[in-house]
């Protein structure tokens, strides 16, 4: 029974929940707690999978009335599979972290060489780099030596207030170490076998992190300059004819919508989402795993 329930929970969390949660609009009003909820959903799904692997052999051998050697073999097999799952996640995380670090280091090296920021010292931060080029582009390169990069095009299409809003937004990504959150979700996404894999958490969390940065930037620089910057940065790009329609158009609209309304972060939603996140991790453990462990340890076959 335990194995079936944990299996149902794991499948629900990884296949059923992500779609509606990614489409829901309440997280727009509680982005930080929603990120926490996504993390909890993902972790809980992993723990459920491990729970199934460990409890199923025990329950099957007990039900079949198998002898001790069979039960012992089943248990060893279960431990091996659980080990493989954990190993796969760890290897994926190390791989993603290492590749991103190498790539960012190289990118930072080149940005530093191409920098024209000496002409723009008045803009402020030491880690700002300005690239030649009319294409308006603003981004940050996270890491131990982070950089905020603007193209010259950004300085041409945005006024000073809007540039400040963009800088505040990017600095928030860097200060809050958003790349660590993204890397963990990417690592999980890559470690999950094909049929169970879903991009929904990855994209949803990315959008929520943007919203968190928007919220800090609007407090520092005002919602209006930020909204105008967001609108102009996307509008000013000369779209090539063969370019596909913007797949994240919905995400962009959601961010713009939030910025046209008064500040709407909701305490109630934040608390509810945070409670749900904690509950997802604690409740299955207390209700399913602990009683099962209690029974199973009485018949430990090794």
């Amino acid at each position: 029974m335990t194995a079936l329930l944990l299996g149902a929970l794991g499948l629900t969390l990884s296949l059923v929940v992500p779609g509606p949660l990614a489409r829901a609009h309440w997280p727009d009003r509680a982005p930080a707690a929603a990120v926490l909820l996504w993390q909890s959903i993902t972790l809980s799904a992993v723990l459920s999978a491990l729970g199934v692997v460990l409890s199923a052999p025990y329950e099957v051998t007990r039900a079949a009335g198998s002898g001790k050697p069979v039960a012992a073999a089943a248990l060893i097999g279960a431990l091996v599979v659980a080990g493989v799952i954990i190993l796969r996640l760890v290897v994926s995380l190390i791989g993603v972290t290492r590749r991103s670090r190498v790539r960012r280091a190289r990118h930072r090296e080149l940005v530093d060489l191409l920098d024209r920021a000496e002409q723009h010292r008045e803009l402020g931060p030491d880690n700002l780099r300005v690239l030649d080029g009319a294409l308006p582009l603003a981004y940050c390169v996270p890491g131990r030596e982070p950089r905020v990069v603007l193209s010259n095009g950004v300085l041409q299409v945005l006024d000073r207030d809007q540039v400040d809003a963009v800088l505040a937004h990017e600095q928030t990504h860097l200060r809050h170490r958003h790349e660590v959150v993204m890397e963990s979700f990417t690592a999980f996404y890559r470690a999950v076998p094909g049929p169970l894999r879903s991009r929904a958490p990855l994209d949803a969390v990315h959008l929520l992190l943007e919203m968190i940065s928007d919220d800090v930037a609007r407090r520092k620089a005002g919602a209006e300059p930020l909204r105008a910057a967001l609108e102009r940065l996307s509008d000013a790009v000369p779209l090539a004819e063969d370019a596909r329609a913007d797949p994240t158009g919905d995400a962009r609209r959601r961010r713009l919508d939030r910025l046209t309304k008064p500040h709407t972060v909701s305490v109630g939603l934040n608390v509810a989402a945070a409670l749900a996140a904690v509950g997802l991790l604690v409740l299955p453990t207390v209700i399913l795993v602990v009683p099962w462990l209690d029974r199973a340890l009485d018949h430990w076959p090794l």
């Binding site: 993603v96 972290t97 590749r99 991103s100 790539r103 960012r104 990118h107 294409l135 308006p136 582009l137 603003a138 981004y139 940050c140 390169v141 996270p142 990069v149 963009v166 937004h169 990017e170 990504h173 958003h178 790349e179 993204m182 890397e183 990417t186 690592a187 990315h206 992190l209 943007e210 940065s213 910057a229 967001l230 940065l233 996307s234 790009v237 779209l239 090539a240 370019a243 596909r244 329609a245 913007d246 797949p247 994240t248 995400a251 962009r252 961010r255």
Partner: peptide
Amino acid sequence: DAALAYFMGQLSPDAL
């Protein structure tokens, strides 16, 4: 890979 950079503005990478 994990995203290299976090963008201001969410235009499709292909279009950019």
